[in-house]
Lab assay of single mutants.
Amino acid sequence: TFVEFNGKKVEYPTPEAAEKAAKKLAKKLNLKVTKKNGNYKLE
């Protein structure tokens, strides 16, 4: 499962880990999380 932000793509071993990381990053970077095709994107 990938988390995409600032043009970077980071892969996580589980969807749970990706979701957790996405939410944490979104909060830190003041972005919102969108889920697309099972992957997460911060914008």
Results as ranks from 00 to 15, higher is better:
F2Q: 04
K24S: 13
N39K: 05
K23H: 14
T1A: 11
E19P: 00
A17F: 05
K28T: 10
F2T: 10
T14R: 04
V33I: 15
N30W: 05
E4N: 02
K24C: 15
N37R: 05
K28M: 13
F5G: 01
P13C: 07
K41H: 15
L42C: 03
A26L: 02
Y12A: 01
T1V: 13
P15S: 09
N39G: 15
G7N: 08
V10W: 15
L31Y: 05
K9V: 12
F5R: 02
L42F: 05
V33D: 00
L42D: 02
T1S: 12
F2D: 02
L29I: 04
T34E: 08
Y40M: 06
K41L: 15
K35D: 05
K8Q: 12
L42S: 02
A18I: 00
A21V: 07
N6V: 06
T1L: 07
K27G: 08
K41S: 12
L25F: 06
K20R: 13
N6W: 14
T34P: 00
N37F: 07
V33Q: 02
A26T: 02
P15F: 05
K23C: 14
E19C: 15
N30Y: 06
E11V: 14
V10A: 06
N6G: 11
A18G: 04
L42R: 01
T14P: 07
G38S: 05
K28D: 10
N39E: 08
A18K: 00
K8M: 13
N6Q: 10
L25K: 03
K32L: 11
A17L: 13
K23A: 11
K24V: 12
A26H: 02
K9E: 06
A22M: 04
K36N: 13
L31M: 12
A17S: 09
L31I: 04
A22K: 01
P15M: 11
N6H: 14
L29H: 14
A21F: 08
Y12P: 01
K36R: 11
N30H: 14
L25V: 05
E16I: 09
A21L: 03
F2S: 07
A22L: 03
N37Q: 07
A17K: 09
A26F: 00
K23G: 08
T34H: 08
A17D: 11
E19F: 14
G7T: 04
G38V: 02
F2W: 13
V10K: 12
K28I: 14
A21N: 04
E16A: 12
E11Y: 15
V33Y: 07
K36W: 11
L29A: 04
V3M: 04
E11T: 13
K24T: 12
K28V: 12
L31T: 04
P13Q: 08
E16D: 09
G38E: 06
A26N: 01
T1Q: 05
L31V: 06
L29P: 01
N6E: 11
G7Q: 05
G7L: 02
N39T: 10
P15C: 10
K35F: 15
F5Y: 13
E4K: 01
T1R: 09
F2E: 04
A26G: 07
T34Q: 08
A18M: 01
P15T: 09
N6P: 03
Y12G: 00
G7H: 06
F5L: 09
E43Y: 13
A22T: 04
E4M: 07
V33P: 01
G38P: 04
F5H: 08
L31H: 03
K9M: 13
A21E: 06
L25G: 01
K35M: 14
L31Q: 04
E16V: 08
K23N: 13
K36D: 14
K8D: 06
L25Q: 04
K32I: 15
A18Y: 00
K41A: 11
N6T: 03
E19K: 12
A21C: 06
T14W: 03
Y40L: 09
K32D: 05
V33G: 01
K27S: 10
E43S: 09
K9D: 03
K8N: 11
F2A: 05
K20T: 11
V33C: 12
E43K: 05
P15R: 12
G7P: 00
T14L: 02
K8W: 15
T1D: 02
E43M: 09
E11G: 11
K27D: 11
E19Y: 15
K27L: 11
E4H: 04
N6K: 08
Y40Q: 04
L31R: 02
L25M: 10
K8R: 13
Y12R: 00
N30V: 04
K28R: 13
K8V: 13
K27H: 10
A26V: 02
E19T: 05
A21D: 04
Y12Q: 00
K8Y: 13
A22D: 00
Y40P: 03
G7Y: 04
E19N: 07
A17T: 08
E43F: 10
F5E: 01
N37G: 11
T1H: 13
N37S: 06
K35C: 14
E11C: 15
Y12E: 00
T14H: 05
N37M: 06
K36H: 14
K8E: 09
N37L: 06
L29F: 14
Y12S: 00
N6A: 10
V10S: 08
K20S: 11
A18L: 02
E19S: 08
A17V: 06
K36I: 15
P13H: 07
A22R: 01
E43P: 01
K28A: 12
L29Q: 04
N37P: 02
L25D: 01
P15K: 10
Y40S: 02
K9P: 03
Y40D: 03
E4F: 09
E19R: 11
L25T: 03
E43I: 13
K8I: 13
E11K: 15
K24G: 09
K20C: 14
A17M: 12
V3P: 00
A22F: 02
N37T: 04
K32A: 08
N39Y: 11
V3D: 01
T34V: 14
N37E: 12
T1I: 13
L29C: 14
E4C: 09
P15N: 09
L31E: 02
A17N: 04
P13M: 08
K24L: 12
E11R: 15
T1F: 15
K9T: 10
K23D: 09
A26E: 03
Y12C: 03
E16K: 12
K8S: 09
P15L: 07
A22Y: 01
G7F: 05
Y40G: 02
K9L: 11
A21T: 03
E19L: 14
G38F: 03
E19I: 07
N39H: 13
G7W: 03
K28H: 13
A26M: 04
K35N: 08
L29N: 05
K36P: 06
L31G: 02
Y40A: 03
K9S: 11
V10H: 09
A22V: 08
V3L: 08
K36Y: 12
A26I: 03
E16C: 12
F5S: 02
K36C: 14
A21Y: 07
F2Y: 13
K32V: 14
E19A: 10
N30I: 04
V3Y: 02
E16R: 10
V10M: 12
E43T: 10
K8H: 13
T14C: 06
K27M: 10
T14Q: 03
V10G: 02
N39W: 09
K9G: 03
G7V: 00
E4S: 07
N37C: 14
K27N: 09
K9F: 12
T14S: 10
K28Y: 12
Y40H: 04
L42T: 03
P15D: 11
L31K: 02
K35R: 11
K41I: 15
K28P: 01
V33H: 02
A26W: 01
A18R: 00
K27T: 08
P15A: 13
E19W: 14
E4P: 00
G38I: 02
E43Q: 08
E43H: 08
E16H: 10
L25W: 09
K28W: 13
A26R: 02
L25Y: 05
K28S: 10
K20Q: 12
V33R: 00
K32M: 11
E11N: 11
G7R: 05
G7D: 06
V3C: 05
A17Y: 06
V33N: 01
T14V: 02
V33F: 05
E16M: 10
N6C: 15
L42P: 03
K20M: 12
T34K: 08
K24H: 12
A18C: 01
P15V: 11
F5Q: 02
G7K: 05
N30T: 05
A21S: 06
Y12F: 11
L42V: 15
Y12M: 02
A26C: 04
G7C: 13
A17W: 06
K9A: 09
K23T: 12
E16F: 06
N39R: 06
T14F: 05
T1K: 07
A17R: 07
F5W: 12
N39L: 09
E43V: 13
A26S: 07
K9N: 07
N30S: 08
T14E: 03
L29R: 04
N39V: 14
A26K: 02
A21K: 02
K27Q: 11
L25N: 01
A26Y: 00
K41C: 15
N6I: 06
G38T: 04
T34M: 09
K36Q: 14
K32N: 08
T34A: 06
Y40W: 12
